[in-house]
Amino acid sequence: MSILEVVGVSKLFGALRAVDDVSFTVEAGEIFGIAGPNGSGKSTLFNTISGIPFGPDEGRVVFQGQDLSRLKGHVIARMGLARTFQRETAFDTLSVFENALMGASYGRAARGAGAAEVTEALQFVGFDKAMFRRPAAELSVYDRKCLMLATALAMSPRILLLDEPASGLTKPEIEDSITLIRRIAGRGITILLIEHVLTMLLTLSQRLMVLNQGRMLILGEPEEVVRNPEVIRAYLGDRRRAA
């Protein structure tokens, strides 16, 4: 049984089909890449899968055999589906430790979760114990991204939805991120990765799906997908029209 099945999912904003009849399955433990030009509906797809702010208008999402339709966002999160956001988000008035504590307290293993899980998650992404007390508002962009990741990991998720983790990062930071994501996958956590940065996408993804204008363009081996002429046209536009 696949860990995640997206079946004919659509999301409409008025007449605009931001996500249009998208279907794919994700196997447990794989790193599944999602690419596409800006506005192709990638983040909206993540929104509909995670149910925050709303689930799909058409179709359904099945996570670990359970239909997520009509389930609230926080319930889905507690089932083990965690996501990160394009912008490095944090609870600014809370400390680093408290941020991760929220993930642990309301995540999948909420009942038993405590300081140990929080410390583990924070140290896994590279936070020193000395940083634990710092207010999240004072962190650098990269540290905030790491914190966002740590709070997701503190939830003991089964699947992690990463939305453009490399955006705004320098080259060495991107290298570190790739290593980190590999280590997360090494723990058996399934990963859905939206990314623009090709190196990250190609190094990590075992399969790659490309969206364009809300619709699935192609799904297959990363190396083949990026060489596909339709994909190139979607990103760069039609050369004939430019002339």
Binding site: I52, A82, T89, T93, L94, G107, A152, M155
Partner: peptide
Amino acid sequence: LAIRALRDNEEYATSRG
């Protein structure tokens, strides 16, 4: 902590359960 988290960023808090 949770109510402060909700006040800081409601969507993010929801995404953390």
